[in-house]
Structure formats: C-alpha cells, structure tokens
Design a protein around this nucleic acid. Structure first.
Lengths: 345, 345
DNA sequence: TGTTAGCACTCCCGAGGTTTGAGTGCTAAC
DNA sequence: GTTAGCACTCAAACCTCGGGAGTGCTAACA
C-alpha cells in the first residue's frame, strides 16, 4: 500500500514535531501547523491509517501519536531532507581536527569529540582495523623470561605492540636482528592480511625446512601475526546521553552504557556500515541488538584513497535530530579521510 | 570533645546500618540491634550529641539519621575494621590478572575490570607516568612531509609513540640510524625524566657546537622528550554507578560522568594518592573537587621495587561498603606490583 | 466519495486532602 | 544517668476529583 502525498506530509509533521518537542503529536496540533489546511478530523482519519500500517502508535488512548521504529525508518529513507552545514560549523570541525601534528589515534579521538559536541549525542569512532593496514616496520625487543616485545608499525603510522612468549629457544640478539631485517624487507607493502596469507603459504611450501634462520623467522612471525589484535572503539561524550529525556528510564540507559563498555556489538554495527556507501542509519531494535532499543546510530566510513579504514558516527535516541546530525557525520567522515590522505602522501 | 565508647558504637551502628540499607537510621532500629542494650530514648540522646558534633544529620524532622561526610571520615579513620579477603576472592583477582602474557597496558586494564566487578563500583587505574619509567629503546620512522614517527619503549615494555615535525632539513636515513644508535646506547637506563635533564645539560655545555650529527641528535631528542605525554587513566565499570540508588539524582550522576570524561581532576587525586603509603580514602566534598560530591574514592599506589609507578582504586558513592572494598583495592595494588616486579626481572 | 463538525468517551495528570507510620524532643519518673 | 511516655512533626502513600487533551464514531455536507 502506497502513501499518498497527504499521508506523507502528515507523517512528516508527526515525526518532525515529535523530534522537536518530545511530546506525542495530536491531530489538532498537526492540523494547525499544516500548510495544506485540513481539519483535525481528517488528520485523525489519516493517522488511523498510519497507525494501522505501523508507522505511528499512541502511547495510550488519549495521547497523541508517536513514530514507531518503522515510522522513523520510513521517514529517514524517504522523507528526510538533510540540511547543509553552515560555514561556521564546517570551520569548527576542520579547525578542531586539523590542529597540529596528530597521530592517527589522536585525530580519531578528536573526531569523536567533535561528533559528540556538535550533535549533543555520543560520538563513536571505529579505529582502522590493523589487519587492513599496510605493513611498514617490525621491531623486536627481548624482555625477561623468554618473552619478546614486538612492535608493529603500519604505513600510516599506526603503532601496535604485543608480547609473545617463546618456548625454549630464544634466538640470539644477532639472529633476532637478522629476522627483523628479513621481515622488514620482505613484508614491506603488504597488508597485515596478506602477510598472514603469505606466512601460511610459506609454511605449506616448507621452504624453511633446511634453513634454521628461516624457520625461526616463520615461527616467530606466525606468532606475531596470528594472534589477533582487538578492534578499538573510541567513545566520546557519554555524559550527553544523560541529557536525553527518553533515557530517564534507568534500565534503558544502563543497557546502553553496558553496550558502550562491552563494545563488541557496537563494533559489529560499525563494521557493517563499512560495507555500504555514504551515511548509514540504524534505528533502534532494527539493529538486531537489544541494547540499542530506543537508540539510533548514524555512521559513515572513512577511507584513504580506495582503502576503507574504519567508520565513525553518532549514537543517540531514536528521536534524534536526523537532519542536523547526518551532515555532521558525513562531513566529519570526509574530513578524516582527507586528513589521512594528505598525511600519507 | 572526645567520643566515649557508647557514642562510638552508636555511630558505628548508624554508619554501617546506613551503608547496608541505604535508609536513614532511627533510634529504635539502633537500640534493637545494639549489643549493649539501650533504650531508644538513650540512643536519641547520644544521636543528638553526634548531630551537634556534625557526624550525622537528619534529612528531615521525622526521618532517622544519616552520616555526614565528616561522619564517614571519622568512621573510616577510627572505627573501620577491614575484613580479610577470602581465599576465593584472592584467587579471583589473581587468576584474572595473571592470565597469559599481558602487556602492562592490558594488565592495568584487567586490574580496572576486576576492581570494578569485585566492588560493584567503578574501577580506575592511573597508568605509570611515562616520565618516571626507564628508557629502553627509541626508533625513528620517517613519514611524509618532514614528519617523523618516534617510538619510545620503556624497560618494562611500555610503548609510546608520537609524531614530530622537522623544520627544513630531514636527516638522511643513514644519519637517522646513527642518531638512533647513539641515543639508544647513551640514554639506556635513565628515566625519561633524567633524559630530559641530560638534554638540557648537554645543550648548556654546547658540546654539539662543532659536531653536525650531535647537533641533529640534540634538536631531535629535545623535540621528542620535551613534548609531554598525557597521563592515561583507565576507567572500567562506569555502568555500575547506575545501580547506585543515590545517583538516581541525574544531576549528581552527570557531574560524575563529566569528571570521568575530563579526567584531569581524577588524575590529580590519583596522583596525590601516590605520595602516601597504603590505602587512601577520599570522601566526597572533602576532596576539594565539586564533581565528587557524594562520592568516595579508595586508592592505593602500585610500584616496581622502590619505584612508584601509578595508582589504582575504586570510585563509588560515599555510602560505600568500605570494609569490603578497601581490602580489594589493597590486594589488587599489591598484586599488580608483584606482577610488574616479576616481569621486569 | 471525501471531508468536516459534533459528541461522547477515555485516560493522563496535577492539585488537594487524608491517613499512616516512623521518628523526634521534651519531661518526669526511676 | 537512664528510661518510659507523650505530644508533635513530617514525608510518603493513597485517594479523589476535575480539567484537558485527544480519540473514534456518526451524521451531515459538498
């Protein structure tokens, strides 16, 4: 069943009115503010239809109507008009994210902060998967008791470190140096992903069978690269959710906070949004994770050239000022991409 | 004015009762549970005295009494008996923090988690000041546009990285290598603090005047070591504060969350606690920072040998189960110290 | 056939009032 | 010094009741 022009604009009025006021919208209010002059009764008829179709719902008999998740979804997909950012807003974002020499890490943190402060919701950033970054440099530093500190650097300057344990034979400093040099020259330019495949390949080919050093290098690097590196999420502006009246419900808020702490559902969502083009909007329970019920997530990916690095966005209540937030997320994602682009030239 | 035996045990009953129940304590309740059998009327007399001295207060005329910050302070300083941890609890903490090969960073994060989960409040850990750690290794990796990625490793395996910008002349790869080698051998074993002093000294002596390489090394390292590294705080279990009934007051909660986000007041407090021996307890407004009104902070420092590294603890409402939490903090701090000790051998 | 006016109905919400019970301070007796 | 008794206070819980916002239905109108 299709919605006609009139139903559309009434739905629009309900959603936008509710976003602005937080209150359920009654037929009278809609009828008054409406450009096309309709009587409340007519509006009521339309509303009854919209309710039947599941776009709106009334909290109780004599309250107005409130959009459902489905209603928000529909609004976002077909009605929403995003505004453009003002000069000042663009400048705000830029000057905040381009100050000085930022490590990628710092840049992303700043992006999270600006997302949060400009949207008044919570900003989130999924840091680049280390897997997908390009190998630049590896360094070994022996610690005590057969433990080895390994430092990995990606081409874009991302630094990761981990400790691995060697059974039995710790290679000599000289050997380590040789292995290091070998790895640095032979792996250069591959993604970590490719490096991993490469190791598997070499192991299969048993090249190392007669070469002691090569054998060492292989076991070592398989240890380094096969332990996975956990994804990092930056979350900024958590205290903003306390400002949202819809989270006065403590339980709901608690679920959300726990999601922030556990992170991995959040990572899943952010991850998913990397697959798609442009700004993604996930609404409430439609995101399949319970803890985000009542919440919406607006995200966009950031890239360097062709390479998808990560994604960033804003999380807030479903009753979110979409038209305000979408362009902020969009612009921030583009800006981050741009900065990373320049830096890696 | 001194408190006699009886006043003490009544104050104790009020504080502990209130901690257990969250309710104001009435004279009748106290009189009933009391070992020394007293009538409610007598208890009332004593309570009137305690109120006059500022240890307790009644929220309104016909409610019971509640401890003031001063009351908690007094209780903690003179009455509090900390219980011992059970075998199981100790084992919990140990097995959680000693699993596998942890980077210092990971160890501290785990400590934060276990603090949070065992106390049901929020766990906080101040990571070691990089300043105070011992230099182990430095590595330069040139990036684009005159920017240089610098990786610093401390003896205990803490890794820091930063980007510095070189004006004009980027040294050649060969020069960089020389500088790196020089720094690695000459700075080995100093604390970052000492390194800094060392640089200043050398600059004063103008040793580098005729030596181009030395000059490069000096300007470079002064850039590296003089930009300060921000302190890191790990905060775990934030959602636990939502369980505390006293934070149903949204404003209060919001203040606290903002403190978590801004961090630097928290850092100040944690820093202060490093100066003192054993477990420190800061109570509510007495901590001079408004945002911690209604909260208490229990901390202890962790060390490696003689060297103070950082501190860790728990933050929760003033109405906190001190006798439960104090030993947890104490034990965790000792454990972390022990693990770091072993690792650095 | 689509739109509108009218009307009875529902239900939330806040104001005002009452009751209940816990707790207090004071006084007088032990 | 301790206790029993008593009058007093006050918050919280509960009720009631009217107002108001909003609805659905029906009948009339264009």
């Amino acid at each position: 069943m299709e919605l006609n022009e009139r139903s559309l604009s009434i739905l629009e009025a309900i959603v936008e009115g509710h976003i602005a006021s937080g209150e359920p919208m009654g037929s009278r209010t809609i009828a008054r503010q409406q450009k096309l002059p309709l009587s409340p009764a007519t509006v009521r008829n339309v509303m009854a239809d919209l309710e039947e179709m599941g776009y709106i719902i009334s909290p109780h008999t004599s309250a107005g109507r409130v959009p459902t998740d489905k209603g928000y979804r529909f609004y976002v997909d077909t009605i929403l008009q995003v505004r453009n950012l003002s000069e000042v807003e663009r400048h705000n974002i830029e000057s905040y994210c381009q100050s000085g020499n930022l490590r990628t890490q710092e840049l992303l943190q700043k992006a999270g902060r600006i997302l949060s402060s400009m949207s008044s919701y919570t900003g989130i950033v999924l840091a680049p998967r280390f897997d997908a970054t390009i190998f630049r440099h590896i360094e070994f530093l022996p610690l005590s008791q057969g433990r080895l500190l390994v430092i990995l650097v990606s081409r874009s300057g991302l630094v990761q470190n981990k400790i691995i344990e060697l059974e039995g034979e710790m290679p000599s400093t000289h050997e380590l140096e040789q292995i290091m040099n070998y790895l640095n020259s032979s792996l250069s330019g591959m993604t970590i992903h490719q490096v991993r495949a490469n190791i598997v390949e070499q192991m299969r080919e048993e090249k190392a069978r007669y070469d002691e050093l090569m054998k060492h290098a292989l076991t070592l690097s398989s240890k380094v690269f096969n332990s996975d590196i956990e994804d990092e999420v930056i979350i900024e502006g958590v205290s903003n959710v306390l400002n949202q009246p819809e989270f006065s419900n403590i339980d709901c808020m608690k679920r959300l906070f726990q999601a922030f702490e556990q992170k991995h559902h959040l990572i899943d969502l952010l991850d998913k949004s990397q697959q798609a083009e442009g700004v993604q909007i996930y609404i409430g329970s439609q995101s399949e994770y319970q803890e985000f019920e009542g919440c919406s997530l607006i995200t966009a990916k950031y890239t360097r050239g062709e390479q998808i690095l990560g994604s960033l966005g804003v999380i807030g209540p479903s009753r979110m000022a979409y038209s305000q937030v979408v362009p902020v997320v969009d612009y921030t994602a583009r800006l981050v991409s741009r900065v990373l682009e320049i830096e890696s030239e």
